[in-house]
Each structure stands twice: as structure tokens, then as C-alpha cells.
Design a protein around this nucleic acid. Sequence first.
DNA 1: CAAATTTTTGACCGATTGGACAAACGTTAG
DNA 2: CTAACGTTTGTCCAATCGGTCAAAAATTTG
Lengths: 209, 209
Amino acid sequence: MEGSAPRRTRIQQEKRELILEAALEVFSANGFRGSTIDQIAEAAGMSKPNLLYYFRRKEDIHETLMQRLLDTWLAPLRELDDIGDPMTELRSYIRRKLEMARDFPRESRLFANEILQGAPRIMPMLEGELKTLVDEKAAVIKGWMRAGKIARTDPWHLIFSIWATTQHYADFDVQVRAVLGADRGGDGRFEDAARFLEQLFLDGLKPKG
Amino acid sequence: MEGSAPRRTRIQQEKRELILEAALEVFSANGFRGSTIDQIAEAAGMSKPNLLYYFRRKEDIHETLMQRLLDTWLAPLRELDDIGDPMTELRSYIRRKLEMARDFPRESRLFANEILQGAPRIMPMLEGELKTLVDEKAAVIKGWMRAGKIARTDPWHLIFSIWATTQHYADFDVQVRAVLGADRGGDGRFEDAARFLEQLFLDGLKPKG
DNA sequence: CAAATTTTTGACCGATTGGACAAACGTTAG
DNA sequence: CTAACGTTTGTCCAATCGGTCAAAAATTTG
């Protein structure tokens, strides 16, 4: 489907980019149904009919946004390789995911919103591309367990726990800030989180000795 | 504010309960702005004007729902005591939270939705009641660390990680199911999760020996 | 430049939504 | 039974929403 690549003028490329940036801001803050075309148009600095000249329907914006998101969002997991030291590999995967939560919180929230609503628009991708990728990486992790490089557990739930703990700092940011308060909730909270998660996934909570 | 307790007839009590149950279903699936009074009314088996006789505004339903939610939602953390063995206390806190994700996924999603949107309606509670409770329990945990009962880490981030990992199974349920597939995504996934989380929080991933 | 094409805008439309209201209908207490 | 009160419904309204359209303005092309 979708035929050949649609030729786009310079203005079209620029304006579409502008709209997608504005839509990311609005959608991630209000969800799909909670966002209006007017809001996006205003955030993009143009009129509603003008925006609709570049994207015919509200859904088209969301769809385009979602397609782009998924590629970058799964990049860290794709990088998880069999070549390095297992424990180091996992540690840097966690670090990369936490950095994404810090640097792209809007993308994380957009994704969370979609999943929360039952993933109506990306269900096929979850069952297809995503499942395949996770199964593949789970196999790699299982290999490490068999080789005695890391403790034996469920690789799938391990991946879930990494997703959950890292994305929490983007998706539940307001709660994290509120609980930590003005002093501890500042810029340092991601470093604190990184240190904590490293210890958790490495040694757990059992006291040494 | 809110004066004395509003007397309610038997019918009022029943119908309000019915509406709140229906609203929980609808709100948790579609978010606040994504839900319509008509949907809630239909789910509650009554007409829209009839529903509006019991709750004057859509927001009133949401507010009532949210107030009730918060009490039950924080109950597990409130139970975290200084009396038992620290490691056992933490383990049963994790278990209770996971059970809540299993038994009350709609409540979890309602809460997640609210936080994702920036917690506009419960911000004071987060900075007040919630922060106080967490700080209090963080102090308890710190005591355990000082006593050498559990490893030294950041108690706040420890609590966050427990929230994140357990609620993940409610909020991201569709994703979890999609990735695990038909066989592994069935009823057993919560027991698998429980086993995994126990090991993670106890020993981490470092191989034994 | 001028014609062709692309971009922008204001005005408009039908559908949906939250909510108001008065009238009809039930229920209950005296 | 009946009057008072509580409940339910049909109808209606103003606001908002996603989206259309034709015409004006700007840009590109020859």
C-alpha cells in the first residue's frame, strides 16, 4: 500500500515537521481524544484549515507520529547484543532507557497513552514487530542464564521490569516530583534513579554479608 | 467545606453506586475527556438526564471516584510496618501491590490516566498526603538500612520501582499480553511476575557464586 | 513578466457534547 | 387516599469539534 514515496515541496516538509512537533506536545499532554486540531494548529502557529491542508484528518497526524515513535522507541532494545559482557549489556540498556525517559518524556507519554487506551492503533505492531523483537532478545538473555553469566529468571518479565522502572520517570514525572519535593525532585533525580536501578538489578536488596 | 453529611435516600445510594461503577469502567478505558456522559449513563443502565440528577456535572463523578480511589490505592503502603522482618515486609508489600494490579486494573488505569495528564485534579493530594506518607515510610526503610537489615539505597526510588513494576501489569496489560502471546500471556502471568519480582528485589541479577 | 501551481484563510456545516428544564411518573408518609 | 417529595424522561440549547470549500494570497515555473 501507500504507493511510491509522495513528493513533497520544501514548504510541505517544513510545515509537516512543525505540525508533528506541535502534535507531540499536545497529544502527549492530553491524549488523542483530549486534544483538538485547533490546539495543535495554534501550537504550530497556523490556522486549522491550513493544518488540515497538510494532514487531512486528525488521525493521520497521530498515525504518523506513532510510526516514527516506534522506531526510535525500540532502538535501545535493538542494541542489546550478545557480544559484550552480559551484565554490562543489561546495565547500559537500563541506562539508555532511563536517558530516553529523561530526554524524550513526551514520546514516552504518547506511547503510554496509547497503551493505556488499549493500543487500538498499534495492536498489530505489538503482536508482530514488538513481540518478535522481545522474543529474540529474551532468547539472548536466556543464553546468558544458561552460561551462568546472570541469575536464572524470566527474561520477558525482566524486560518488562526495565521498561516499567525507567518509563516511570517520564510517565509519572509529576508524581515523582511531588513526592520527592523541591529539593530532591530537581535535576539530580535521574542520577539518583540511575544509581538505584543499577544496584537493584545488580544485587537486589539483600544486605551484604 | 461540604457542610454536614448529605442525607441520601436508599435509591440515591444505590444509583450513585451504580453510576460510579459504570464511570470507573468508562473513564479507565477512555480517560476523562475521552468519555461521555452518555456512555456512562448507558453503562449504568439509565438515561443521561437521570444520571445528571445524581451527579450534577461530569467532573463530580470523576472527583468522587478519585477520592475513593486514593484511599484504597495507598492502603498497601500504609500497611508497611516496622514490626515484622524488613525483607518479609517489603516482599509482602510487593505482593499486595501486584495483587491490586491484578484485581483492580481499572482503578490503576484511572490513576495512571490522571497522572499522565499532569494530575490536574489531585496535585494537592500528591504534594500533601502522598508525600507525607512516602516520606514516613522512607524513614522506616532507612531505619532498616541503618540496622543492616537490607542493603543501603535510596528508599524513595525503591518505592517508585515497586510502584512501577507492579502497576505495569495493570496499566500496560495489553502490551504485556501481546508480547507474552496466547500461551504465556494467560492467567499465569501474574504468578510469573510475582516470582520474578521477588527474585529481582531480593537478589538482583548477579549470578550466584 | 505571466501563467500555473501551491499555500493560506474565512466562512461555513453537521455531529457530538455537557448540561438545563419542565413535565410526567413513582414513592412514601400522614 | 392524598399531598408532598423523590425520580425519570423527552426535549431542547449553546458550545465545541472535526472537517469542507471556494476564493484569496503567495510561490514556483516557463
